[in-house]
Computed example of a mutant assay.
Amino acid sequence: MYYLPEPPYFLLIVGLFTGLTCGLAFEATLKMNVKELLKKPANQMLKGSGLQLPFLGICVGICVFLSAGLEIFLFDRWLSYSIALPMTIFIAALVWIQLESLLKQIKIGGSKAIDLDVFY
């Protein structure tokens, strides 16, 4: 008898929900930190700012979402997580580095330092 496991639709929904709710918390915390940074620049930008926990929640949610999607459409569980975890870690590191760079620009030049209308 051939056994077909139940696709992890629940994990797909939980991963998406976790990523979205942590993303909203991350957005609110980031807006609050940027307002404080514009009022009085601090030496510590992302350390102790409260951004790490929502960002970690986003990463966990996205990793679960990606692995559940891979498991539904292509692979088994072990292979899905072995693809989704390094991909999530790599992308999260790139986003975190870019966020640090943007906050440094805001600290040095204010909100005009990241004016995107200049490129049009």
Rank of each mutant, 00 (worst) to 15 (best):
S101F: 10
F10H: 03
G23D: 08
S111N: 08
F65K: 00
T29A: 11
E71M: 08
L20I: 15
V34A: 12
P7S: 06
L79I: 14
F90Y: 10
G57F: 11
F26R: 01
A113E: 14
L38Y: 03
L103K: 01
I58Y: 02
L56R: 06
P7I: 05
G48C: 06
I106N: 07
L51K: 07
E71W: 04
P5E: 11
F90M: 13
A42Q: 13
L94D: 07
G69Q: 03
W96H: 09
S111K: 13
P5I: 03
F26D: 09
P54G: 08
L38T: 15
Y81I: 11
L16H: 13
S80L: 01
Q52M: 10
P5M: 10
F26G: 04
F90S: 11
L99R: 13
F90C: 13
V64M: 15
L85A: 15
G61A: 09
Q105R: 15
K35C: 01
M87C: 13
I62V: 06
Y3A: 00
S101P: 00
I83G: 03
F119G: 02
I83S: 02
K40W: 03
E100A: 10
A84C: 08
T29N: 05
C63I: 01
L37M: 15
G110T: 10
K40I: 03
L102K: 06
A93N: 03
F55Q: 12
I91L: 15
L12N: 06
G19R: 12
K47I: 15
L24F: 14
C59R: 02
L30F: 08
K112C: 06
V34N: 04
E100K: 12
D115I: 03
M32G: 10
L30V: 01
L24E: 11
L51R: 03
C63N: 14
G109N: 14
E36V: 08
F55Y: 12
I97S: 00
E71L: 00
A68V: 01
L79Q: 10
G50Q: 07
P41L: 02
F75P: 00
S101C: 01
S82E: 04
Q105S: 07
F119R: 14
F55V: 01
A25F: 06
S82W: 09
L70A: 06
M1P: 02
G69T: 00
V34D: 02
F75A: 05
G61Y: 00
Q52S: 12
P41H: 07
A84S: 05
T18K: 07
L51E: 04
I114G: 09
S80E: 08
T21R: 13
I97N: 07
T29V: 04
L79Y: 02
I108W: 04
G109D: 15
Y2P: 05
N43A: 03
G61M: 09
P54T: 04
Y9K: 07
G23M: 02
L4N: 05
M32R: 13
T29R: 11
K112Y: 13
G110Y: 12
Y3P: 00
S82T: 12
N33V: 12
A92K: 00
F119K: 02
D115F: 12
F26I: 00
